[in-house]
Design a protein around this nucleic acid. Structure first.
Length: 438
RNA sequence: CGGAGUGUGGCUCAGUCUGGUAGAGCACCGCGUUCGGGACGCGGGGGUCGCAGGUUCGAAUCCUGCCACUCCGACCA
């Protein structure tokens, strides 16, 4: 992409509305624009990141055997009356009437819809297990939206729903999602820790929140230090027994403040390993048994010929929240530091002197080579002064900068800079490309 | 939903107390000098001062009502 033909409306100063780093940086980097409280337009740079995160989430869901669908944003109130949640949900549900005075709602989640789809088509235990997911905009009319996209009212969520014949099978489905989440967050460059969460009215131990540590996190969390650095499982035998992996992650103490028991924490974790920090919830999984299948009559016929309600679980990842979460976890005073996997552009090629034919030529060569190599380069071919370009490119946070100016070109050199470390090297163009591409 | 606060050009803010021709910096346009870490000079464009009433010769400023947004708290992907 050529910056001169693109649209990245950066701001020198952060709007006073924004209080936390990720919100300020997203506004300053021209990623989003607030349209109302907790409602944002995604500008090109922000959209690129959102799409990259979405794609990683999608790939990891697919790998774990989940099947993608797309459910509507507008749902029928009658469906929610079946589950009993239409009256329970309260003011967080945005309720709408169509021209026929029929009650609709903007979906805050989709258990009812997916259960309706499932019950219409699945009749036998032989078709189980099934896990459907969708990546769709949700709306929850939060009392107090804040922190930019981290707590918006409208947000993009990946929500998956598993259907199993009994609780033991449902636990296997749960474990698959548990492992898939570890892999997903790892690919996003995050250290996410699964923590015991409130399982709600169903009880049991089958609910975990995935938390990334950041000073601006919304909740206080407590865990064994070793959990933070534990590597992701990677590809596993998804049809095999994943319990050992889950056990390894859940054996050590980890809880959010709601579930925290200080006495247990101190008993189970040696003092040197106790980590107490702020955390951001980026995923939440739980098993809810027959909560929806019973009232909505989502049943399958078992091997014994008897119908039974399926056992369900649901699994959420806050895709748009992750954009903010990643920035919270990875930024410095100059701006955003994107992990390579989600960077909107892999390399910023900075032309320090557009119009200088030798510099232009070197930039075009570099840009073409990087583009052909799939590195998503952004060529800054604008007329700004060098200082302004450096500041803007640091702000938007491409992992690499390739700096090409007249002084260097005269000596056959360009400069590469790694955004994360600030480390710079002066190299020939060929060597510089080599360094970036390997 | 309780408490606090703020609405003045794209952004940051002054002006409001004490009513009298709407300002500054950044950004934008033109010209010139510049050009390796957010340059400088000169000239220029852009604002129904959140909205609606009211008081007044005159309202960004005073009064009333409404709206929006932010922060703290209680609740949540």
């Amino acid at each position: 992409m050529r910056l001169s033909r693109y649209f990245i409306p950066t701001l020198r100063e952060a709007p006073s509305d924004a209080q936390i780093a990720s919100h300020q940086l997203m506004l300053r980097a021209g990623m989003i624009r607030q349209e109302a409280a907790g409602i944002y337009a995604w500008l090109p740079l922000g959209l690129r990141v959102l799409k990259k995160i979405e794609q990683i989430v999608r790939e990891e869901m697919d790998r774990a055997g989940a099947i993608e669908v797309l459910m509507p944003t507008l749902q029928l109130a009658d469906l929610w009356r079946e589950s009993g949640r239409y009256d329970d949900y309260g003011d967080e549900m945005l309720r709408i009437k169509d021209r026929h005075e029929r009650d609709l709602l903007y979906g805050p989640t989709a258990e009812e819809v997916i259960t309706e789809i499932f019950r219409a088509h699945v009749k036998s235990y032989k078709e189980l297990p099934k896990n459907f997911y969708n990546i769709q905009w949700k709306f929850r009319d939060e009392r107090r939206p804040r922190f930019g996209v981290m707590r918006g009212r409208e947000f993009l969520m990946k929500d998956a729903y598993s259907f199993d014949v009994d609780e033991a099978a449902a636990r296997r489905s749960y474990n698959r999602m548990f492992v898939a989440y570890l892999n997903t967050f790892s690919r996003l460059g995050l250290k996410a820790v699964p923590m015991r969460a409130d399982p709600g009215p169903i009880g049991g131990d089958l609910s975990h929140e995935f938390i990334i540590l950041a000073d601006t996190g919304e909740s206080q969390v407590f865990c064994h230090r070793d959990l933070v650095e534990m590597p992701a499982p990677g590809d596993v035998d998804w049809d095999g027994d994943l319990q050992a992996i889950v056990d390894q992650r859940t054996a050590l103490y980890a809880a959010t403040e709601d579930m925290h028991e200080q006495a247990r924490f101190e008993a189970e974790v040696p003092e040197a390993d106790r980590l107490s920090a702020r955390g951001i919830e980026v995923g939440h999984i739980f098993y809810f048994g027959e909560k929806y299948s019973k009232p909505m009559r989502a049943v399958v016929t078992g091997p014994d010929g008897q119908e039974r309600p399926i056992h369900g679980g649901s699994y959420g990842v806050g895709v748009s929240r992750l954009v903010g979460g990643i920035i919270e976890a990875s930024h410095d005073g100059a701006g955003i530091i994107w992990p390579d996997a989600v960077a909107p552009f892999g390399v910023a090629v900075i032309n320090l002197r557009p119009g200088d034919s030798a510099v232009d030529l070197a930039c075009e060569q570099a840009y073409g080579a990087l583009r052909d190599a799939g590195k998503d380069p952004l060529l800054d071919d604008t007329d700004e002064r060098p200082g302004a370009k450096f500041a803007a490119m640091d702000l938007i946070g491409a992992p690499w900068q390739l700096i090409i100016g007249p002084k260097g070109v005269a000596e056959g050199k360009v400069e590469i800079k790694r955004r994360a470390t600030g480390e710079r090297q002066s190299l020939s163009l060929e060597d510089a490309l080599q360094a970036i591409l390997t």
